[in-house]
């Protein structure tokens, strides 16, 4: 089921190669880097369009968290499903969405993934297994468990990944969902992207345990902590959790420690953290820079190859924004469409 392949695996063999170099071929790894660029440049493009008044509403950027989205989705197929969060652009792209249709959604156009009804906070591409971003913190947790219940009942062999933030672990839905997933041994992986803060509230101030993964013991499932800025570490832990899920052994709680560079949403005075803290993460732990140098070190790509991918991503982003601008607006006459299912 999972898109794993070993043929043409990266050079520098040996058991001490990081996981992804043993697990995936070089094209797959270069594609992972491409997706990371795509996420970052998509969000930079969205941010700029927002500043220029082309996009309204609000948006939550995941710049700095790309390794987690990409590492988690690396081994998934389109049939495997995810539930996403308000900070969900990266998940959507990592799962395979087309950035043109994402931009179109942000511009409120009919060609957008939600036909202009959802916007950034509800971005979804059901065709690649993304059941949607969510405006409600913790809202996706039980839904992911329900999707995993379907997978089990219908014996599809699919896994479901539930993305959520550190802040979400204090919602009742989190606890109820983990418990049910555990008692029914459902094929779901709970992926907490711990970026240190829920809006302005640090994990230390909001959560009684030091790690979100510590919650796992209350629900008798493995709780795994990884450096969420290292693609290979994320992918490796995810691989184990996925195997477990597909083998009917039940859920895993996987915590990716990461950091968001931007403010919580469009308005944020960053009063709850220091400039130094932000700068340290940006300069010393950037997930894209780290992945670039690792790929070069293992001979998967060189500087020219990097430039080529960056350039092609730049073009894809430009074309996406152009597509969004030129797409038509929905008609007010269709306001009440999609409230209920159209029936013949």
């Amino acid at each position: 089921m999972s898109a794993t392949a070993k043929k043409g695996a990266a050079k520098k063999d040996g058991a001490n190669q990081p996981f992804i170099y043993r697990q995936f071929d070089q094209d797959k790894l270069r594609d992972a880097l491409r997706k990371m660029y795509l996420i970052r440049q998509f969000e930079e493009g969205a941010e700029e369009s927002y500043m220029r008044g082309l996009i309204h509403g609000t948006m939550h950027l995941s710049i700095g968290q790309e390794a987690s989205a990409v590492g988690i989705c690396l081994g998934l197929s389109d049939e495997d499903q995810i539930t996403s969060t308000h900070r969900g652009h990266g998940h959507c792209i990592a799962k395979g969405a087309d950035v043109s249709r994402m931009f179109a959604e942000f511009f409120g156009k009919t060609t957008g993934y939600c036909r202009g009804r959802g916007g950034s906070m509800h971005i979804a591409d059901v065709s690649t297994g993304n059941l949607g971003a969510n405006g409600i913190v913790g809202g996706g947790l039980p839904i992911a468990v329900g999707a995993a219940l379907t997978a089990k009942k219908m014996k599809t062999g699919n896994v479901v990944v539930c993305f959520f933030g550190d802040g979400a672990n204090n919602e009742g839905a989190f606890h109820e969902a983990l418990n049910m997933a555990a008692i029914w041994k459902l094929p779901v992986v709970f992926v907490c992207e711990n970026n240190g803060y829920g809006m302005s509230t640090s994990v230390a101030r909001a959560t009684a345990v030091p790690n979100i993964a510590d919650r796992a013991s209350a629900y008798a499932m493995p709780g795994v902590i990884v450096d969420g800025n290292v693609v290979s570490d994320v992918a490796e832990a995810m691989h184990e959790a996925t195997e477990r899920a597909r083998n009917g052994e039940g859920p895993t709680l996987l915590e990716c420690k990461t950091y968001r560079y931007r403010g919580h949403s469009k308005s944020d005075r960053n009063r709850y953290r220091t400039k130094e803290e932000i700068e340290e993460w940006m300069t010393e732990r950037d997930p894209i820079e780290a992945f670039e140098s690792q790929l070069m070190e293992f001979g998967v790509i060189d500087q020219n190859g990097i430039e080529e991918i960056r350039e092609s991503v730049r073009k894809e982003i430009e074309a996406g924004i152009e597509f969004a601008k030129e797409s038509p607006m929905p008609e007010v006459a269709n306001l009440e469409k999609y409230v209920y299912t159209e029936q013949a």
Binding site: H56, G57, E105, G108, K109, C114, G116, R117, G118, G119, M121, H122, M329, P330, V332, L335, E336, V339
Partner: peptide, 16 residues
């Protein structure tokens, strides 16, 4: 309000 959730698109939103 219209018999619909509030849509994202600003024109639709106003019409709601």
């Amino acid at each position: 309000g219209a018999e619909t959730p509030i849509p994202y698109n600003p024109e639709l939103e106003k019409a709601t």
